[in-house]
Write a protein that binds this DNA or RNA. Structure first.
Lengths: 238, 238
DNA sequence: GTCTATATTTAGATAGAC
DNA sequence: GTCTATCTAAATATAGAC
């Protein structure tokens, strides 16, 4: 039952990568949560990088399966398929299932770049999404001003959207509400637009019903919950 | 000339934070680049966290000065002021002057949360931007569906936009082109919209003139340059 | 205030018994 | 394959002379 064991390991790695990112995930921690000795872990995976690569491979496989599901309905327009795919990404991110890699770890990059399975999955995902993008641009539902690769990168980047964890941590909004907003800002922008992205429009809010009070977080990733704020813009250091 | 010395130190810290992020910036490296011994550095700043905090304070001060400049023309609509501010952010990021903090370093968060100067700057920046946002929502130039704090977070998040470094590294596009695209996707979304964000519309491109080929980078932050790609979607591991 | 040299801690990885 | 115990490297931080 080696495969079961390794599946359990990747489960833990995936969760820890989503929770704290690659840098702050320690192998000791992984071993402890799986319930085995660290040395035993290394019998299954050669390095910390290999652990991360395994988690990445699995999430890419899941993403491709999500695309399969979305393509099951052949009449759905390309732009709607892209909406659905972004919704899958937001849901995965919201549920703490989206692993996040580090800024620029050359060792990790070397491992990923040498992993044929990983590279092949990235390639397939990019090509299939690229096809949807070009199709949506042809039929005018996606901006044709942007090169397809800019659109692709922009969608990929949503997988580590720092806004989602902040909104989630605030505890003020429902999961669906948060995901709707992020879809809307991605496809329609902050200015709003003719067509709402994805789901039907929600009940409009009054403009000044919430007063902004925020901490900038240039690093991305989640911060500690800022808590409910009251009054005229207070900060909660953490 | 202690202040000059410390200014030089913060210069180096700022650049290194922008280049490699907090995690991969080492104090040895800072000392080496400044040209002084590490122990001397610690006479000026108590810790690595204090170094990062100093860089953050400085960039916030610069951001506030940028807002001053933008507000100098009182007739400019709020949404255009927001455009200008995002353009400042994109320019700073493009020039490698935007420091990036780590995912969730509790020690660093404690230092920042205890830094009165830092907190005060964050507060002022948030309040002033928040006022612009509410104003733009009132006059209908910004979506009133979004709570102001969602808009604010979304704009803050652009300071660590992972798309910019990828596009920059590709070497295919000019700085202005990249910044225009990112402004457009932020305010008008991927679907495109009635009004172009910020600057006048550029010459339209044909939809399929660039073929997407990408590596997903869920962590955000910059990857190594993928290089020019040719043919039908090849990957450059790095 | 600056330096050389060193202390301390942490975390990735391994040795070797069973 | 799993374990305990250990090695090693890197990086933050400090001692103490000048």
């Amino acid at each position: 039952m080696r495969l079961m064991r390794e599946e359990a390991i990747v489960d833990v790695v995936n969760r820890l990568l989503a929770e704290k990112g690659y840098e702050f995930m320690t192998v000791d921690e992984v071993a402890a949560e799986v319930g085995m000795a660290k040395a035993s872990l290394y019998k299954h995976f050669a390095s910390k990088e290999a652990l991360a690569a395994a988690a990445m491979v699995r999430v890419l496989e899941r993403a491709l399966r999500a695309m399969d599901d979305i393509e099951r309905d052949p009449r759905r327009p390309a732009v709607e398929r892209l909406h659905e795919m972004l919704r899958w990404t937001m849901r995965t991110l919201y549920e703490g299932q989206m692993p996040t890699l580090p800024a620029q770890n050359s060792a990790l990059r070397a491992v990923l770049g040498a992993d044929k399975v990983y590279l092949n999955l990235v390639l397939r995902l990019s090509d299939r999404l690229g096809a949807w993008i070009v199709e949506a641009q042809r039929d005018g539902t996606l901006s044709a001003n942007l090169p397809p690769e800019v659109v692709l990168f922009t969608l990929f980047a949503r997988a580590c959207d720092p806004v989602l964890p902040v909104l989630k941590a605030s505890g003020q909004y429902s999961a669906e509400q948060i995901q709707d907003w992020l879809l809307e800002t991605c496809f329609s922008g902050l200015s709003g637009s003719p067509k709402a992205a994805g789901s039907p429009a929600k009940a409009p809010r009054t403009a000044a019903s919430a007063r902004p009070a925020a901490q900038p977080n240039p690093s991305g990733h989640d911060q500690a919950a800022p808590g409910r704020r009251r009054g005229k813009s207070a900060l909660t250091p953490g």
